[in-house]
Write a protein that binds this DNA or RNA. Structure first.
Lengths: 244, 244
DNA sequence: CGGCTTCTTGATCAAGGTCAACCTTTGTGG
DNA sequence: CCACAAAGGTTGACCTTGATCAAGAAGCCG
Protein backbone atom coordinates (compact mmCIF):
# COMPACT_ATOMS: atom_id res chain seq x y z
CA UNK A 1 0.00 0.00 0.00
CA UNK A 2 1.19 3.45 -0.83
CA UNK A 3 2.11 5.36 2.25
CA UNK A 4 1.06 8.94 2.19
CA UNK A 5 -0.25 10.57 5.25
CA UNK A 6 -3.51 12.47 5.18
CA UNK A 7 -1.71 15.32 6.89
CA UNK A 8 -0.06 16.50 3.75
CA UNK A 9 -3.01 15.89 1.46
CA UNK A 10 -3.28 18.47 -1.29
CA UNK A 11 -6.79 19.34 -0.32
CA UNK A 12 -5.97 19.77 3.32
CA UNK A 13 -3.06 21.97 2.52
CA UNK A 14 -5.34 24.14 0.48
CA UNK A 15 -7.62 24.56 3.46
CA UNK A 16 -10.42 22.89 1.64
CA UNK A 17 -11.37 20.82 4.62
CA UNK A 18 -13.38 21.34 7.68
CA UNK A 19 -10.74 21.53 10.40
CA UNK A 20 -10.37 18.05 11.85
CA UNK A 21 -9.29 17.06 15.31
CA UNK A 22 -6.41 14.74 15.84
CA UNK A 23 -8.76 11.82 16.48
CA UNK A 24 -10.80 12.52 13.40
CA UNK A 25 -7.75 12.75 11.25
CA UNK A 26 -6.53 9.45 12.59
CA UNK A 27 -9.80 7.75 11.84
CA UNK A 28 -9.99 9.14 8.35
CA UNK A 29 -6.48 7.92 7.72
CA UNK A 30 -7.71 4.47 8.68
CA UNK A 31 -10.59 4.66 6.23
CA UNK A 32 -8.28 5.60 3.47
CA UNK A 33 -7.51 2.80 1.03
CA UNK A 34 -5.61 4.22 -1.88
CA UNK A 35 -5.41 7.08 -4.29
CA UNK A 36 -6.24 6.41 -7.92
CA UNK A 37 -6.03 8.24 -11.20
CA UNK A 38 -8.63 7.64 -13.87
CA UNK A 39 -8.87 8.83 -17.44
CA UNK A 40 -11.63 10.94 -18.87
CA UNK A 41 -15.07 9.47 -19.43
CA UNK A 42 -14.60 6.42 -17.23
CA UNK A 43 -17.20 4.95 -14.93
CA UNK A 44 -15.91 5.30 -11.40
CA UNK A 45 -18.85 3.76 -9.61
CA UNK A 46 -21.59 1.75 -11.22
CA UNK A 47 -25.28 1.57 -10.45
CA UNK A 48 -26.68 -1.30 -8.44
CA UNK A 49 -25.27 -2.62 -5.20
CA UNK A 50 -22.73 -0.41 -3.51
CA UNK A 51 -19.13 -1.54 -3.70
CA UNK A 52 -18.59 -0.12 -0.25
CA UNK A 53 -16.29 2.62 -1.40
CA UNK A 54 -16.38 6.35 -0.90
CA UNK A 55 -14.49 8.79 -3.08
CA UNK A 56 -13.06 12.17 -2.40
CA UNK A 57 -12.27 14.05 -5.54
CA UNK A 58 -8.77 15.39 -5.29
CA UNK A 59 -8.41 16.77 -8.76
CA UNK A 60 -10.58 16.91 -11.87
CA UNK A 61 -14.32 16.90 -12.43
CA UNK A 62 -16.85 14.10 -12.32
CA UNK A 63 -20.61 13.80 -12.67
CA UNK A 64 -23.34 11.73 -11.15
CA UNK A 65 -25.80 10.40 -13.73
CA UNK A 66 -29.20 8.95 -13.03
CA UNK A 67 -29.83 6.24 -15.60
CA UNK A 68 -33.39 5.65 -16.67
CA UNK A 69 -34.95 2.39 -17.72
CA UNK A 70 -35.39 3.59 -21.31
CA UNK A 71 -31.65 4.27 -21.64
CA UNK A 72 -31.97 7.97 -21.26
CA UNK A 73 -29.83 9.56 -18.63
CA UNK A 74 -29.69 12.76 -16.70
CA UNK A 75 -26.82 14.45 -14.95
CA UNK A 76 -28.09 15.01 -11.45
CA UNK A 77 -24.91 16.50 -10.02
CA UNK A 78 -21.53 17.86 -11.00
CA UNK A 79 -18.72 16.76 -8.69
CA UNK A 80 -15.82 19.13 -8.14
CA UNK A 81 -12.51 18.83 -6.32
CA UNK A 82 -13.19 18.48 -2.62
CA UNK A 83 -16.55 16.79 -3.13
CA UNK A 84 -17.34 13.50 -1.53
CA UNK A 85 -19.04 10.93 -3.72
CA UNK A 86 -20.75 7.66 -3.02
CA UNK A 87 -22.26 8.45 0.35
CA UNK A 88 -25.75 7.70 -0.94
CA UNK A 89 -24.82 4.28 -2.18
CA UNK A 90 -23.07 3.41 1.07
CA UNK A 91 -25.96 4.44 3.25
CA UNK A 92 -28.75 2.78 1.32
CA UNK A 93 -26.69 -0.17 0.13
CA UNK A 94 -27.55 0.43 -3.47
CA UNK A 95 -27.87 3.26 -5.91
CA UNK A 96 -29.41 4.00 -9.25
CA UNK A 97 -26.85 6.53 -10.30
CA UNK A 98 -23.38 6.17 -11.69
CA UNK A 99 -20.34 8.36 -11.26
CA UNK A 100 -18.38 9.25 -14.37
CA UNK A 101 -15.18 11.20 -14.77
CA UNK A 102 -15.59 14.28 -16.93
CA UNK A 103 -11.86 14.96 -17.06
CA UNK A 104 -8.88 12.88 -16.10
CA UNK A 105 -9.33 12.68 -12.39
CA UNK A 106 -7.54 11.83 -9.16
CA UNK A 107 -9.51 10.24 -6.37
CA UNK A 108 -8.92 9.23 -2.81
CA UNK A 109 -10.70 5.96 -2.12
CA UNK A 110 -12.15 5.40 1.35
CA UNK A 111 -13.58 2.35 3.04
CA UNK A 112 -17.32 2.87 3.38
CA UNK A 113 -17.76 -0.04 5.73
CA UNK A 114 -16.18 2.00 8.47
CA UNK A 115 -18.99 4.54 8.36
CA UNK A 116 -21.02 2.93 11.16
CA UNK A 117 -17.96 2.93 13.32
CA UNK A 118 -17.29 6.53 12.43
CA UNK A 119 -20.76 7.45 13.64
CA UNK A 120 -20.11 5.66 16.84
CA UNK A 121 -16.78 7.26 17.56
CA UNK A 122 -16.93 10.69 15.96
CA UNK A 123 -20.35 12.27 16.35
CA UNK A 124 -19.18 15.72 15.29
CA UNK A 125 -17.82 14.44 12.03
CA UNK A 126 -21.02 12.51 11.60
CA UNK A 127 -22.99 15.70 12.06
CA UNK A 128 -20.86 17.36 9.40
CA UNK A 129 -21.55 14.45 7.07
CA UNK A 130 -25.28 14.78 7.55
CA UNK A 131 -24.93 18.47 6.83
CA UNK A 132 -23.29 17.58 3.56
CA UNK A 133 -26.13 15.23 2.80
CA UNK A 134 -28.69 17.93 3.53
CA UNK A 135 -26.84 20.46 1.43
CA UNK A 136 -26.87 18.02 -1.47
CA UNK A 137 -30.59 17.66 -1.03
CA UNK A 138 -31.03 21.40 -1.26
CA UNK A 139 -29.06 21.52 -4.47
CA UNK A 140 -31.31 18.78 -5.80
CA UNK A 141 -34.42 20.69 -4.86
CA UNK A 142 -33.23 23.73 -6.73
CA UNK A 143 -32.28 21.61 -9.71
CA UNK A 144 -35.74 20.01 -9.83
CA UNK A 145 -37.47 23.32 -9.48
CA UNK A 146 -35.44 24.78 -12.33
CA UNK A 147 -36.18 21.84 -14.59
CA UNK A 148 -39.86 22.08 -13.76
CA UNK A 149 -40.33 25.78 -14.19
CA UNK A 150 -37.40 27.51 -15.87
CA UNK A 151 -36.60 27.91 -19.54
CA UNK A 152 -33.36 27.05 -21.28
CA UNK A 153 -31.61 30.36 -20.67
CA UNK A 154 -32.42 30.43 -16.98
CA UNK A 155 -31.26 26.87 -16.46
CA UNK A 156 -27.94 27.45 -18.14
CA UNK A 157 -27.30 30.81 -16.53
CA UNK A 158 -27.95 29.29 -13.15
CA UNK A 159 -25.72 26.33 -13.87
CA UNK A 160 -22.80 28.55 -14.81
CA UNK A 161 -23.12 30.75 -11.78
CA UNK A 162 -23.60 27.85 -9.42
CA UNK A 163 -20.55 25.98 -10.59
CA UNK A 164 -18.53 29.17 -10.60
CA UNK A 165 -19.56 29.85 -7.01
CA UNK A 166 -18.74 26.35 -5.88
CA UNK A 167 -15.31 26.60 -7.43
CA UNK A 168 -14.75 30.02 -5.98
CA UNK A 169 -15.29 29.04 -2.36
CA UNK A 170 -12.74 26.31 -2.92
CA UNK A 171 -10.24 28.74 -4.33
CA UNK A 172 -10.45 27.22 -7.79
CA UNK A 173 -11.83 30.22 -9.61
CA UNK A 174 -10.09 33.44 -10.43
CA UNK A 175 -11.62 36.84 -10.61
CA UNK A 176 -14.18 36.19 -13.33
CA UNK A 177 -12.82 32.96 -14.74
CA UNK A 178 -12.85 29.34 -13.91
CA UNK A 179 -12.02 26.04 -15.56
CA UNK A 180 -15.04 24.60 -17.34
CA UNK A 181 -14.45 21.29 -19.06
CA UNK A 182 -18.09 20.44 -19.83
CA UNK A 183 -18.92 19.83 -23.51
CA UNK A 184 -22.19 20.99 -25.03
CA UNK A 185 -23.63 17.50 -24.75
CA UNK A 186 -22.86 17.41 -21.06
CA UNK A 187 -24.38 20.79 -20.44
CA UNK A 188 -27.42 19.43 -22.23
CA UNK A 189 -27.50 16.39 -19.93
CA UNK A 190 -27.30 18.61 -16.89
CA UNK A 191 -29.86 21.16 -18.01
CA UNK A 192 -32.34 18.69 -19.47
CA UNK A 193 -32.02 20.17 -22.95
CA UNK A 194 -30.88 18.96 -26.34
CA UNK A 195 -27.32 19.62 -27.37
CA UNK A 196 -28.53 21.73 -30.25
CA UNK A 197 -30.57 23.96 -28.05
CA UNK A 198 -27.71 24.43 -25.62
CA UNK A 199 -25.58 25.56 -28.52
CA UNK A 200 -28.22 28.06 -29.59
CA UNK A 201 -28.71 29.43 -26.11
CA UNK A 202 -24.98 29.84 -25.61
CA UNK A 203 -24.82 31.68 -28.90
CA UNK A 204 -27.32 34.11 -27.41
CA UNK A 205 -25.25 34.52 -24.27
CA UNK A 206 -22.21 35.19 -26.40
CA UNK A 207 -24.01 37.74 -28.54
CA UNK A 208 -25.24 39.51 -25.43
CA UNK A 209 -21.74 39.62 -24.02
CA UNK A 210 -22.64 37.57 -20.96
CA UNK A 211 -20.02 34.86 -21.06
CA UNK A 212 -17.08 33.61 -23.02
CA UNK A 213 -16.65 29.86 -23.07
CA UNK A 214 -13.74 28.34 -24.93
CA UNK A 215 -10.78 26.05 -24.35
CA UNK A 216 -12.34 24.67 -21.19
CA UNK A 217 -12.36 28.09 -19.60
CA UNK A 218 -15.46 29.95 -18.62
CA UNK A 219 -15.21 33.69 -18.41
CA UNK A 220 -18.12 35.59 -16.95
CA UNK A 221 -18.21 38.92 -18.71
CA UNK A 222 -21.43 40.30 -17.29
CA UNK A 223 -22.24 38.85 -13.95
CA UNK A 224 -25.19 41.15 -13.36
CA UNK A 225 -26.79 40.23 -16.62
CA UNK A 226 -26.25 36.55 -16.08
CA UNK A 227 -27.61 36.72 -12.55
CA UNK A 228 -30.66 38.51 -13.84
CA UNK A 229 -31.36 35.67 -16.25
CA UNK A 230 -30.71 33.05 -13.59
CA UNK A 231 -33.19 34.92 -11.40
CA UNK A 232 -32.33 32.76 -8.38
CA UNK A 233 -29.85 33.99 -5.81
CA UNK A 234 -26.95 31.58 -5.43
CA UNK A 235 -27.27 29.57 -2.25
CA UNK A 236 -24.45 29.81 0.24
CA UNK A 237 -22.28 26.77 -0.15
CA UNK A 238 -19.76 25.74 2.42
CA UNK A 239 -16.13 25.73 1.43
CA UNK A 240 -15.28 22.90 3.77
CA UNK A 241 -16.59 19.95 1.96
CA UNK A 242 -14.45 16.98 2.29
CA UNK A 243 -13.93 14.18 4.72
CA UNK A 244 -11.20 12.39 2.80
CA UNK B 1 -47.43 19.78 28.49
CA UNK B 2 -49.66 17.05 27.24
CA UNK B 3 -48.61 13.72 28.55
CA UNK B 4 -48.81 10.97 26.03
CA UNK B 5 -46.13 8.38 25.90
CA UNK B 6 -44.42 7.55 22.65
CA UNK B 7 -45.06 3.91 23.43
CA UNK B 8 -48.65 4.05 22.38
CA UNK B 9 -48.16 6.33 19.42
CA UNK B 10 -50.52 5.51 16.57
CA UNK B 11 -47.67 5.08 14.17
CA UNK B 12 -45.72 2.80 16.44
CA UNK B 13 -48.73 0.65 17.03
CA UNK B 14 -49.14 0.29 13.30
CA UNK B 15 -45.61 -0.99 13.06
CA UNK B 16 -44.63 1.93 10.92
CA UNK B 17 -41.42 2.47 12.81
CA UNK B 18 -38.02 1.01 12.73
CA UNK B 19 -37.92 -1.02 15.95
CA UNK B 20 -36.34 1.14 18.62
CA UNK B 21 -34.41 0.12 21.66
CA UNK B 22 -35.48 1.23 25.08
CA UNK B 23 -32.79 3.92 25.13
CA UNK B 24 -33.73 5.22 21.74
CA UNK B 25 -37.36 5.39 22.66
CA UNK B 26 -36.52 7.28 25.80
CA UNK B 27 -34.46 9.80 23.91
CA UNK B 28 -37.11 10.33 21.30
CA UNK B 29 -39.64 10.90 24.01
CA UNK B 30 -37.38 13.63 25.30
CA UNK B 31 -37.22 15.28 21.88
CA UNK B 32 -40.93 15.30 21.61
CA UNK B 33 -42.58 18.65 22.24
CA UNK B 34 -46.22 18.41 21.38
CA UNK B 35 -48.72 17.13 18.90
CA UNK B 36 -50.58 19.60 16.72
CA UNK B 37 -53.44 19.57 14.27
CA UNK B 38 -53.43 21.92 11.32
CA UNK B 39 -56.06 22.68 8.72
CA UNK B 40 -55.68 22.16 5.00
CA UNK B 41 -53.45 24.45 2.98
CA UNK B 42 -51.53 25.88 5.92
CA UNK B 43 -47.83 26.61 6.00
CA UNK B 44 -46.28 24.34 8.59
CA UNK B 45 -42.69 25.44 8.17
CA UNK B 46 -41.55 28.50 6.34
CA UNK B 47 -38.47 29.12 4.22
CA UNK B 48 -35.48 30.89 5.67
CA UNK B 49 -33.85 30.17 8.98
CA UNK B 50 -34.85 26.93 10.61
CA UNK B 51 -37.15 27.19 13.60
CA UNK B 52 -35.38 24.23 15.13
CA UNK B 53 -38.34 21.92 14.84
CA UNK B 54 -38.76 18.52 13.26
CA UNK B 55 -42.11 17.08 12.30
CA UNK B 56 -43.35 13.57 12.07
CA UNK B 57 -46.53 13.30 10.09
CA UNK B 58 -49.00 11.27 12.05
CA UNK B 59 -52.00 11.65 9.83
CA UNK B 60 -52.76 13.49 6.60
CA UNK B 61 -50.65 14.61 3.67
CA UNK B 62 -48.24 17.48 3.26
CA UNK B 63 -45.89 18.73 0.57
CA UNK B 64 -42.53 20.37 0.41
CA UNK B 65 -42.41 23.26 -2.05
CA UNK B 66 -39.31 24.92 -3.40
CA UNK B 67 -40.10 28.58 -3.91
CA UNK B 68 -38.34 30.38 -6.71
CA UNK B 69 -37.33 34.00 -6.82
CA UNK B 70 -39.84 34.76 -9.57
CA UNK B 71 -42.73 33.52 -7.43
CA UNK B 72 -43.05 30.24 -9.21
CA UNK B 73 -42.99 27.17 -7.05
CA UNK B 74 -42.41 23.51 -7.47
CA UNK B 75 -43.50 20.61 -5.32
CA UNK B 76 -40.28 18.74 -4.65
CA UNK B 77 -41.74 16.10 -2.35
CA UNK B 78 -44.99 14.69 -1.14
CA UNK B 79 -45.01 13.91 2.58
CA UNK B 80 -47.11 11.01 3.80
CA UNK B 81 -47.98 9.67 7.23
CA UNK B 82 -44.84 8.33 8.86
CA UNK B 83 -42.54 10.73 7.02
CA UNK B 84 -40.15 12.95 8.85
CA UNK B 85 -39.99 16.56 7.72
CA UNK B 86 -37.60 19.38 8.45
CA UNK B 87 -34.38 17.45 8.76
CA UNK B 88 -32.78 19.46 5.98
CA UNK B 89 -33.54 22.77 7.62
CA UNK B 90 -32.21 21.57 10.96
CA UNK B 91 -28.96 20.29 9.55
CA UNK B 92 -28.09 23.24 7.37
CA UNK B 93 -29.66 25.85 9.63
CA UNK B 94 -31.76 27.25 6.83
CA UNK B 95 -33.89 26.08 3.98
CA UNK B 96 -35.40 27.39 0.79
CA UNK B 97 -38.42 25.16 0.85
CA UNK B 98 -41.67 25.38 2.76
CA UNK B 99 -43.88 22.64 4.08
CA UNK B 100 -47.58 22.93 3.42
CA UNK B 101 -50.46 20.76 4.54
CA UNK B 102 -52.40 19.26 1.65
CA UNK B 103 -55.13 17.94 3.90
CA UNK B 104 -56.01 18.59 7.50
CA UNK B 105 -53.04 17.06 9.22
CA UNK B 106 -51.78 15.86 12.56
CA UNK B 107 -48.11 16.31 13.40
CA UNK B 108 -45.77 15.36 16.14
CA UNK B 109 -43.34 18.20 16.82
CA UNK B 110 -39.80 17.32 17.87
CA UNK B 111 -36.96 19.42 19.21
CA UNK B 112 -34.33 19.65 16.50
CA UNK B 113 -31.72 21.11 18.81
CA UNK B 114 -31.29 17.72 20.38
CA UNK B 115 -30.03 16.23 17.13
CA UNK B 116 -26.33 16.71 17.92
CA UNK B 117 -26.85 15.00 21.23
CA UNK B 118 -28.73 12.21 19.51
CA UNK B 119 -25.75 11.62 17.25
CA UNK B 120 -23.51 11.48 20.25
CA UNK B 121 -25.59 9.03 22.21
CA UNK B 122 -27.39 6.91 19.64
CA UNK B 123 -25.17 6.12 16.67
CA UNK B 124 -27.48 3.44 15.31
CA UNK B 125 -30.41 5.79 15.16
CA UNK B 126 -28.12 8.35 13.60
CA UNK B 127 -27.20 5.84 10.93
CA UNK B 128 -30.88 5.24 10.26
CA UNK B 129 -31.42 8.97 9.93
CA UNK B 130 -28.66 9.27 7.40
CA UNK B 131 -30.21 6.40 5.50
CA UNK B 132 -33.44 8.36 5.38
CA UNK B 133 -31.54 11.34 4.10
CA UNK B 134 -29.90 9.26 1.39
CA UNK B 135 -33.21 7.71 0.40
CA UNK B 136 -34.69 11.16 0.02
CA UNK B 137 -31.80 12.08 -2.20
CA UNK B 138 -32.50 9.09 -4.42
CA UNK B 139 -36.12 10.08 -4.77
CA UNK B 140 -34.94 13.55 -5.75
CA UNK B 141 -32.60 12.15 -8.36
CA UNK B 142 -35.40 10.20 -9.95
CA UNK B 143 -37.67 13.20 -9.83
CA UNK B 144 -35.07 15.37 -11.58
CA UNK B 145 -34.41 12.78 -14.20
CA UNK B 146 -38.09 12.44 -14.94
CA UNK B 147 -38.54 16.18 -15.26
CA UNK B 148 -35.54 16.39 -17.54
CA UNK B 149 -36.34 13.53 -19.85
CA UNK B 150 -39.88 12.21 -19.47
CA UNK B 151 -43.12 13.44 -21.02
CA UNK B 152 -46.31 14.30 -19.25
CA UNK B 153 -47.80 10.81 -19.24
CA UNK B 154 -44.67 9.17 -17.91
CA UNK B 155 -44.29 11.71 -15.14
CA UNK B 156 -47.85 11.30 -13.94
CA UNK B 157 -47.90 7.53 -14.24
CA UNK B 158 -44.74 7.36 -12.20
CA UNK B 159 -46.09 9.74 -9.59
CA UNK B 160 -49.21 7.66 -9.09
CA UNK B 161 -47.35 4.42 -8.76
CA UNK B 162 -44.72 5.85 -6.48
CA UNK B 163 -47.17 7.35 -4.06
CA UNK B 164 -49.26 4.21 -4.14
CA UNK B 165 -46.19 2.13 -3.30
CA UNK B 166 -45.15 4.40 -0.48
CA UNK B 167 -48.60 4.19 1.01
CA UNK B 168 -48.74 0.45 0.55
CA UNK B 169 -45.60 -0.33 2.53
CA UNK B 170 -47.08 1.72 5.34
CA UNK B 171 -50.32 -0.21 5.22
CA UNK B 172 -52.27 2.78 3.96
CA UNK B 173 -53.31 1.39 0.60
CA UNK B 174 -55.79 -1.34 -0.13
CA UNK B 175 -55.64 -3.82 -2.92
CA UNK B 176 -55.70 -1.41 -5.86
CA UNK B 177 -56.89 1.71 -4.10
CA UNK B 178 -55.46 4.43 -1.95
CA UNK B 179 -56.44 7.84 -0.68
CA UNK B 180 -55.36 10.57 -3.05
CA UNK B 181 -56.23 14.10 -2.00
CA UNK B 182 -54.13 15.97 -4.58
CA UNK B 183 -56.00 18.42 -6.80
CA UNK B 184 -55.11 18.87 -10.46
CA UNK B 185 -53.19 22.01 -9.69
CA UNK B 186 -51.10 20.14 -7.14
CA UNK B 187 -50.40 17.30 -9.50
CA UNK B 188 -49.30 19.98 -11.94
CA UNK B 189 -46.96 21.49 -9.36
CA UNK B 190 -45.44 18.11 -8.66
CA UNK B 191 -45.07 17.03 -12.26
CA UNK B 192 -43.88 20.35 -13.60
CA UNK B 193 -46.87 20.68 -15.93
CA UNK B 194 -49.77 23.07 -16.33
CA UNK B 195 -53.05 22.24 -14.69
CA UNK B 196 -54.70 22.07 -18.08
CA UNK B 197 -52.27 19.55 -19.38
CA UNK B 198 -52.61 17.39 -16.31
CA UNK B 199 -56.32 17.35 -16.89
CA UNK B 200 -55.85 16.29 -20.48
CA UNK B 201 -53.38 13.56 -19.63
CA UNK B 202 -55.63 12.18 -16.92
CA UNK B 203 -58.47 12.14 -19.42
CA UNK B 204 -56.26 9.88 -21.54
CA UNK B 205 -55.56 7.61 -18.61
CA UNK B 206 -59.25 7.42 -17.90
CA UNK B 207 -60.13 6.65 -21.49
CA UNK B 208 -57.51 3.91 -21.57
CA UNK B 209 -58.89 2.39 -18.42
CA UNK B 210 -55.66 2.89 -16.46
CA UNK B 211 -56.91 4.68 -13.39
CA UNK B 212 -59.98 6.04 -11.76
CA UNK B 213 -59.48 9.16 -9.70
CA UNK B 214 -62.41 10.71 -7.91
CA UNK B 215 -63.51 11.76 -4.43
CA UNK B 216 -59.92 11.77 -3.22
CA UNK B 217 -59.55 8.10 -4.01
CA UNK B 218 -57.15 6.71 -6.55
CA UNK B 219 -58.03 3.36 -8.05
CA UNK B 220 -55.46 1.68 -10.20
CA UNK B 221 -57.37 -0.30 -12.79
CA UNK B 222 -54.51 -1.46 -14.97
CA UNK B 223 -51.28 -1.64 -13.10
CA UNK B 224 -49.39 -3.26 -15.97
CA UNK B 225 -50.41 -0.57 -18.38
CA UNK B 226 -49.56 2.20 -15.98
CA UNK B 227 -46.19 0.67 -15.15
CA UNK B 228 -45.43 0.41 -18.84
CA UNK B 229 -46.03 4.13 -19.27
CA UNK B 230 -44.01 4.96 -16.15
CA UNK B 231 -41.19 2.89 -17.65
CA UNK B 232 -39.18 3.09 -14.43
CA UNK B 233 -39.32 0.28 -11.91
CA UNK B 234 -40.45 1.52 -8.52
CA UNK B 235 -37.53 1.78 -6.12
CA UNK B 236 -37.71 -0.22 -2.94
CA UNK B 237 -38.77 2.07 -0.18
CA UNK B 238 -38.45 1.15 3.43
CA UNK B 239 -41.59 0.84 5.48
CA UNK B 240 -39.86 1.94 8.63
CA UNK B 241 -39.60 5.62 8.16
CA UNK B 242 -40.13 7.52 11.23
CA UNK B 243 -38.12 8.60 14.20
CA UNK B 244 -40.82 10.47 16.07
C1' DC C 1 -4.67 14.19 -46.69
C1' DG C 2 -8.90 11.97 -44.61
C1' DG C 3 -11.26 10.75 -40.57
C1' DC C 4 -12.48 11.98 -35.95
C1' DT C 5 -15.09 14.88 -32.52
C1' DT C 6 -17.19 19.13 -31.35
C1' DC C 7 -19.75 22.95 -32.45
C1' DT C 8 -22.95 25.79 -35.24
C1' DT C 9 -26.92 26.96 -37.98
C1' DG C 10 -31.17 26.23 -40.67
C1' DA C 11 -35.75 24.02 -41.36
C1' DT C 12 -39.48 21.54 -39.65
C1' DC C 13 -42.40 19.55 -36.14
C1' DA C 14 -44.56 18.24 -31.80
C1' DA C 15 -45.33 18.66 -26.83
C1' DG C 16 -47.12 21.33 -23.89
C1' DG C 17 -48.28 26.31 -22.28
C1' DT C 18 -51.77 29.92 -22.36
C1' DC C 19 -56.23 31.95 -22.89
C1' DA C 20 -60.93 31.41 -22.69
C1' DA C 21 -65.40 29.32 -22.39
C1' DC C 22 -68.22 26.29 -20.00
C1' DC C 23 -69.83 22.62 -16.78
C1' DT C 24 -70.52 20.60 -12.37
C1' DT C 25 -70.63 20.54 -7.53
C1' DT C 26 -70.85 22.69 -3.20
C1' DG C 27 -71.81 26.20 -0.19
C1' DT C 28 -74.21 30.59 1.29
C1' DG C 29 -77.25 34.24 2.17
C1' DG C 30 -81.87 36.07 1.24
C1' DC D 1 -86.16 26.95 -1.64
C1' DC D 2 -83.85 29.58 -4.91
C1' DA D 3 -80.19 32.64 -6.66
C1' DC D 4 -75.74 33.21 -6.91
C1' DA D 5 -70.91 32.72 -6.15
C1' DA D 6 -66.76 30.07 -5.71
C1' DA D 7 -63.84 26.14 -6.60
C1' DG D 8 -62.52 22.43 -9.25
C1' DG D 9 -62.51 20.26 -13.54
C1' DT D 10 -62.91 19.68 -18.74
C1' DT D 11 -62.39 20.96 -23.49
C1' DG D 12 -61.18 23.79 -27.60
C1' DA D 13 -58.15 27.04 -30.27
C1' DC D 14 -53.91 28.96 -30.80
C1' DC D 15 -49.02 29.89 -30.01
C1' DT D 16 -44.23 29.26 -28.01
C1' DT D 17 -40.43 26.55 -26.71
C1' DG D 18 -37.43 23.45 -27.62
C1' DA D 19 -36.67 18.59 -29.98
C1' DT D 20 -35.29 16.45 -34.16
C1' DC D 21 -33.20 16.01 -38.59
C1' DA D 22 -29.70 17.45 -41.61
C1' DA D 23 -25.89 19.87 -43.46
C1' DG D 24 -21.82 22.26 -42.88
C1' DA D 25 -17.59 24.48 -40.42
C1' DA D 26 -13.61 24.19 -37.50
C1' DG D 27 -10.18 22.14 -35.10
C1' DC D 28 -7.16 17.93 -34.14
C1' DC D 29 -4.79 14.15 -34.77
C1' DG D 30 -3.24 9.57 -37.42
Amino acid sequence: MIEMSCDDCVLRRKGMFRPLTQDELKFVARMRRRQITVGQGKIIANAGASNGELYTIVEGWAARYRLMADNTRHMVDVLLPGDLAGLQANLTGRTNSIIVSLTPIRLCVLEGKLLPQLMRELPDLCMALMGLCAEGQQRSDTHSALLATAGAAQRLAFLFLQIFERLKVRGLAYDTMCPFPLRRAQLADAAGLSEVHVSRTLAEFRRDGLIHLADNILMIRDRQGLAKIAAEPMPVCSGNQALL
